[in-house]
Amino acid sequence: MTPAEIGSVWAPRLLSVLRIMAALLFMQHGTQKLLGFPNMPANGQPAMGTLLWFGGVIELVGGALIAIGFFTRPAAFIASGMAAVAYFLFHAGRGFFPVMNGGELAALYCFVFLYIAAAGPGPWSVDATMSRNRASRWT
């Protein structure tokens, strides 16, 4: 197999792996904020309806949707925007460099989810399965 053939076989699968792992890690922020799991946030759980609470809802629900690959593109786009807002509201004011202001994860999530919103969920997803099922009904 040539490197190009290997890439064409594995790139879509690794997109699915990236989507799943990024979403599961993202969900941890939501479970921490909303459920106090695996530990309580340093400032305690956010009050319902606050900006941090809405962030937790997006992290938990959006992360779950992205992880299973259902409504992946819109969920990833919303998660990307939430991560960008988190970076600029909570990190950028502490300094220019993300490594210094604690915003590396927010910046990384922003761009990973933006890529997933553009590239799609990959073959191992509910969206891909539904698309294949729709296509097979019409052939």
Score class of each variant (00 low, 15 high):
residue 1 M to V: 06
residue 5 E to H: 07
residue 5 E to T: 03
residue 7 G to V: 05
residue 8 S to T: 12
residue 10 W to G: 08
residue 12 P to N: 13
residue 14 L to T: 03
residue 14 L to F: 07
residue 15 L to T: 10
residue 16 S to Q: 11
residue 16 S to Y: 06
residue 17 V to I: 15
residue 17 V to C: 05
residue 19 R to K: 07
residue 19 R to S: 11
residue 19 R to L: 13
residue 20 I to A: 14
residue 20 I to C: 12
residue 21 M to P: 00
residue 22 A to N: 02
residue 23 A to R: 06
residue 24 L to H: 01
residue 24 L to G: 00
residue 24 L to W: 00
residue 26 F to M: 08
residue 27 M to P: 01
residue 29 H to R: 08
residue 30 G to E: 04
residue 30 G to H: 03
residue 31 T to Y: 07
residue 31 T to R: 08
residue 32 Q to L: 09
residue 34 L to E: 02
residue 35 L to F: 12
residue 36 G to W: 01
residue 37 F to A: 15
residue 40 M to P: 00
residue 40 M to Q: 14
residue 43 N to L: 15
residue 44 G to V: 11
residue 44 G to F: 05
residue 46 P to Y: 14
residue 47 A to H: 09
residue 53 W to L: 10
residue 54 F to R: 13
residue 56 G to E: 05
residue 56 G to I: 10
residue 56 G to H: 10
residue 56 G to C: 10
residue 57 V to L: 14
residue 58 I to R: 04
residue 59 E to N: 10
residue 59 E to G: 10
residue 60 L to P: 01
residue 60 L to Y: 05
residue 60 L to I: 03
residue 60 L to F: 14
residue 61 V to L: 12
residue 62 G to A: 10
residue 65 L to G: 08
residue 65 L to I: 14
residue 66 I to S: 02
residue 67 A to C: 13
residue 68 I to E: 04
residue 69 G to W: 08
residue 70 F to S: 02
residue 70 F to V: 11
residue 72 T to Q: 03
residue 73 R to G: 01
residue 73 R to I: 03
residue 74 P to E: 12
residue 75 A to D: 03
residue 75 A to L: 08
residue 77 F to C: 10
residue 77 F to P: 00
residue 78 I to L: 15
residue 80 S to N: 08
residue 84 A to F: 09
residue 84 A to C: 11
residue 86 A to N: 01
residue 86 A to D: 01
residue 87 Y to Q: 09
residue 88 F to C: 01
residue 89 L to N: 09
residue 89 L to W: 05
residue 90 F to T: 14
residue 91 H to C: 10
residue 91 H to F: 11
residue 92 A to W: 07
residue 93 G to I: 09
residue 93 G to N: 01
residue 94 R to M: 09
residue 95 G to Y: 04
residue 96 F to L: 14
residue 96 F to Q: 10
residue 97 F to R: 06
residue 100 M to L: 03
residue 100 M to N: 01
residue 100 M to Q: 03
residue 104 E to P: 00
residue 104 E to M: 02
residue 105 L to G: 00
residue 105 L to E: 00
residue 107 A to S: 12
residue 109 Y to H: 06
residue 109 Y to W: 12
residue 110 C to V: 15
residue 111 F to T: 13
residue 112 V to C: 05
residue 114 L to K: 11
residue 115 Y to P: 00
residue 116 I to N: 03
residue 116 I to R: 04
residue 119 A to L: 07
residue 121 P to W: 13
residue 122 G to H: 11
residue 123 P to T: 13
residue 124 W to T: 06
residue 125 S to G: 07
residue 125 S to H: 11
residue 127 D to K: 04
residue 127 D to N: 05
residue 127 D to W: 10
residue 127 D to C: 04
residue 127 D to A: 07
residue 129 T to Q: 12
residue 130 M to G: 02
residue 130 M to W: 02
residue 131 S to K: 12
residue 133 N to T: 09
residue 133 N to G: 00
residue 133 N to F: 06
residue 134 R to E: 08
residue 137 R to T: 13
residue 138 W to E: 10
residue 138 W to M: 13
